[in-house]
Write a protein that binds this DNA or RNA. Structure first.
Lengths: 155, 155
DNA sequence: TCATTGCCGACCCGAATGGTAGGATTTCCC
DNA sequence: GGGAAATCCTACCATTCGGGTCGGCAATGA
């Protein structure tokens, strides 16, 4: 089984690529698609989610493009993945309320709260914790270690 | 997004129900299906996975049924979920080799190991750790807290 | 004015999910 | 021996979803 869809993979790669660029200058989606060998039309849908979540900003028209809305150090992967995949719920019956609250709708079958709730809660905790403690800057630094060349944006 | 399918939900509930029973006596799938209000025919497929993974054993014929192959204390939810959902990989490009080894097939696009690897590895670690540190006995105890009645198996 | 780029909605195809149906086959009980 | 009660096994099916494609509109700079 795979946990995340390719939206998450593409979106994270896109964010990393943006993090590698020097800030203040927009990068066209075409350049990003070429750099990562990803289909441009599909990336449009992916980046739209990131924009609606306020993680990237954009400029239209010639020499337009995208850039990070905040410095990479202040972006936790928790936000990125949630923007791309939606709220992280281990199971359908988990509905996220406001903050940290978790509700299982299977309560009430015969008065018994389902025991699986305990398990899924722990799993969710494990995932969210690992996402929250990783910033985009971490990934950018990791990518520079293997490929120090910045992708030479010929805007 | 939901992480696990209903196979995991049903299978875990089934294991918990088996854990609530006194050992040594087989419980019919029909009784389990009734206790959890789940479709019998579908549960057959679910329990087949648990049996093939060696987590439950079975006896055919009248008064046959299922029981835990090991005491609940010795069953980690890691094993249960893996039997039900298959190997846990955060992303398609993760292929589990023999033990703990993780490989990302996206290496080589332009010599750059994908930075997402770092992230997915951490996430997988968070999940596996939470599953390994929870035993079936934990869930059984949790379920008894809310519903102390053992489900009165009328064989 | 025109190329470049972001933005948006419709459509589409294959695979997986969540089942159902039906028939073996084995075993206990009378 | 004959049911009845069970596990087992395979095939099938409806719907959803993932992973895209396509076409067109809107805005912006040269």
């Amino acid at each position: 089984m795979t946990i995340f869809s390719s939206k998450a993979e593409y979106g994270v790669r896109l964010m990393v690529e943006l993090g590698r660029q020097e800030p203040g200058r927009p990068v066209s989606l075409k350049a990003l698609a070429d750099a990562e060998s990803l289909p441009l039309a599909y990336l449009e849908q992916v980046v739209a989610r990131l924009r609606k979540a306020g993680l990237v900003e954009s400029a239209r028209g010639a020499h337009g493009g995208y850039w990070l809305a905040r410095p990479a150090e202040e972006i936790t992967m928790d936000d990125v993945v949630e923007a791309l995949e939606g709220a992280i719920a281990p199971m359908e019956c988990f509905v996220q309320e406001d903050t940290e609250r978790i509700v299982c709708s299977h309560v009430g079958d015969h008065g018994q709260a389902c025991a699986t709730k305990l398990l899924w809660t722990r799993v969710q905790g494990g995932i969210v914790r690992s996402l929250q403690t990783t910033t985009l800057a971490d990934l950018v630094a990791f990518s520079r270690r293997t490929d120090p060349e910045p992708a030479a944006a010929p805007a």
